[in-house]
C-alpha cells in the first residue's frame, strides 16, 4: 500500500445467491480526495459502500484501510477506525432531536465505561461537555442552529439529509462514505451539498468516497471517478475522462446499433 492511499479495495466480489452483485472491483482512495462511484441503477455502487462499512460480507477480495484489514471486522469496529457513512434513504433516529442524533455520532469518541456512566463521574461530565462542543462546531459548520432541538420526524427531507451528513461528521472520520448525497434534494439544496463536500475535503481535510447520480455534482466536486456496470469496473479517471469514455456511454445509453434493435421490437 502506497502512502497516499487511505483505502484500498482489491478484487472485491460478492454474490447474492446466483447474482454477482460486485465482481473483481479494485480501487484506491487517496488522502484528501473526493472519489465518486457512478453507474446505472443496479451497477453495485451502494453494495460496494455496504461492503466497506461491513454491512455485507464479501465473497472474496480484500479491503484495507489505514493499515487495517476490514474484511474480518464488525460494522461497529469499522466505525471505530474512523469510517463514517450516510445512507441512501436516510437512517436517522426518528424520535430524537437533531442534537441527540449528532451526539450519537460522538459514540466512538466517548470515553468511560459502564460504571463511570452509571455514576456520572466528573470525567464523564467533562467528556459530555467536549462532545457537545464538537457537536456545536458541526451545527455551525452545516448551519443547523435553527433545528437543534427539533425532532427528526418533523423535519423536511432536505434538512434530514444534512443532519445525517452532520452525524457522520461528528464521528470525526478519517474517511466519509456518502451514499447518494443529492438524491431527493432540489437544485438549491444540491448546490449547498456541493459546497459542503468541497469544504469537508478542503477545510476539514476528510477524504470522501461517494456514490452519486447527479453528473453535474459529480463533475464539480470529484477528483476521480470510477464507473461501474453490472458489478464490474468500466472506467477510472478524472470526471472528464470517465464521462468521455466510450464504455461508460455505452453502459448508460447502450450501443448505437442497439437503438435500432429496440425500435424494431416495439409494437
Amino acid at each position: 500500500m502506497s502512502t497516499g492511499n487511505l483505502l484500498s479495495v482489491q478484487n472485491l466480489s460478492v454474490r447474492f445467491g446466483g447474482l454477482a452483485a460486485v465482481s473483481n472491483v479494485s480501487f484506491d482512495v487517496r488522502r484528501g480526495e473526493v472519489f465518486t462511484l457512478i453507474g446505472p441503477n443496479g451497477a453495485g455502487k451502494t453494495t460496494v459502500l455496504n461492503l466497506i462499512s461491513r454491512i455485507y460480507q464479501p465473497t472474496s477480495g480484500d479491503i484495507h484501510f489505514d493499515g487495517h484489514c476490514l474484511t474480518a471486522m464488525k460494522p461497529d469496529a469499522v466505525a471505530g477506525l474512523g469510517i463514517a457513512r450516510t445512507f441512501q434513504n436516510i437512517e436517522l433516529f426518528e424520535q430524537a432531536t437533531v442534537l441527540q442524533n449528532l451526539l450519537i455520532g460522538r459514540h466512538t469518541r466517548s470515553h468511560g465505561n459502564f460504571w463511570q456512566h452509571l455514576l456520572f463521574t466528573p470525567s464523564v461530565w467533562e467528556d459530555e461537555r467536549a462532545a457537545r462542543e464538537k457537536v456545536e462546531e458541526i451545527i455551525d459548520f452545516l448551519d443547523l442552529q435553527h433545528y437543534r432541538d427539533t425532532v427528526i420526524a418533523g423535519l423536511p427531507y432536505g434538512v434530514r439529509k444534512v443532519v445525517e451528513l452532520g452525524r457522520a461528521l461528528c464521528v470525526e472520520p478519517k474517511l466519509l462514505l456518502l451514499d447518494e448525497p443529492s438524491s431527493g434534494l432540489n437544485t438549491e439544496e444540491t448546490n449547498d451539498m456541493a459546497f459542503w463536500i468541497d469544504d469537508i475535503r478542503d477545510d476539514l481535510g476528510i477524504p470522501i468516497l461517494m456514490v452519486e447520480h447527479d453528473m453535474a455534482l459529480v463533475s464539480r466536486v470529484s477528483d476521480r471517478v470510477l464507473a461501474m456496470n453490472h458489478g464490474e469496473v468500466v472506467a477510472l479517471g478524472s470526471p472528464a475522462e470517465v464521462k468521455a469514455h466510450p464504455d461508460v456511454i455505452e453502459a448508460y445509453l447502450g450501443k448505437s446499433q442497439d437503438v435500432s434493435t429496440l425500435r424494431r421490437r416495439r409494437p
Partner: peptide
Amino acid sequence: DSEISAQSMGV
C-alpha cells in the same frame, strides 16, 4: 430507533 444506523455509528 435503527440498528443498522447505530452499528455504523460504532455502537
